[in-house]
Design a protein around this nucleic acid. Structure first.
Lengths: 132, 132
DNA sequence: ACAACAATTAGTCATTTAGCTAAATATAAA
DNA sequence: TTTATATTTAGCTAAATGACTAATTGTTGT
């Protein structure tokens, strides 16, 4: 492999939010952009940038369904397989990783429509902002 | 593992110069700071910073011998083992990696004293600088 | 003790990166 | 076809990173 391509993969995995996305998709097969946005507590734009960087590196695949876009790990790429396994193994016992999975369970209980409404409602990640 | 520790490892491997150091030590067991400085064509200070970041992440070990310091991969850490294997495998066939190994052969033919003299002689990485 | 010297650390600066808001795109529903 | 809306892209700012030079540290040899 060209060294720059390897670096693309490694860089795509050396950020906390992106590792959290990886962890989430390790145990949920497929998640909507708005669900991951909700998990990370960042703006949709920020989540989108992280996600597209991971897609560019070949770590994720995405699927469009209506106006929702679902992401999942790219398990087709055999080269990545043992890397994924290793990262997963290292995340075992991580507080952050465990907490995220619990949070995700709650997020999964809310329909995407509601998540999106909440996110555009201004409350997204600035906690103290008030309704007008 | 704590997620931040995992990130320390991943970040330590997501830079071209540091991957090149990894590659060099993958096939040379132990190398002096000045040899790696020579390979990367950066200043000694820059090489030193990369090396210490890798040591901090647990990827490298170092050994002091007189005023020379030798670095090698930390093969004692079993957790890193399969990660190292994976990176090594991905580097297979990389032009940069191959070129570096050839360059290293030449570097190994020069005693450290000479490398260091050359490096402090000002020529280090600014190619056009002239002797006074 | 002192001079020479390999490596590291401190201090700067330029580049990259991650976050935000706002504008643009693309799909769904009215 | 118009309106609403989920995601992406553009433009900006602040923080992180990597490179350099200069100063410091710790070891060798005189």
């Amino acid at each position: 492999m060209i060294m720059d391509d390897l670096l693309l993969i490694l860089k795509a995995m050396s950020d906390k939010n992106r590792v959290r996305i990886f962890n989430a998709l390790q145990s949920h097969e497929e998640l909507c952009a708005c669900q991951l946005t909700e998990l990370l507590e960042v703006t949709g734009a920020t989540a989108s940038r992280h996600l597209s960087q991971m897609v560019r590196a070949g770590i994720l695949k995405n699927r469009k369904h209506g106006r929702w876009i679902y992401f999942r790990l790219n398990t087709e790429n055999i080269l990545l397989d043992s890397f994924f396994k290793w990262v997963k193994q290292q995340l075992h016992g991580s507080n952050q990783a465990d907490k995220d999975l619990k949070t995700l369970e709650q997020i999964m209980g809310v329909p995407c429509e509601d998540l999106c409404r909440k996110q555009r409602g201004g409350a997204s990640c600035a906690k103290h902002k008030q309704e007008i």
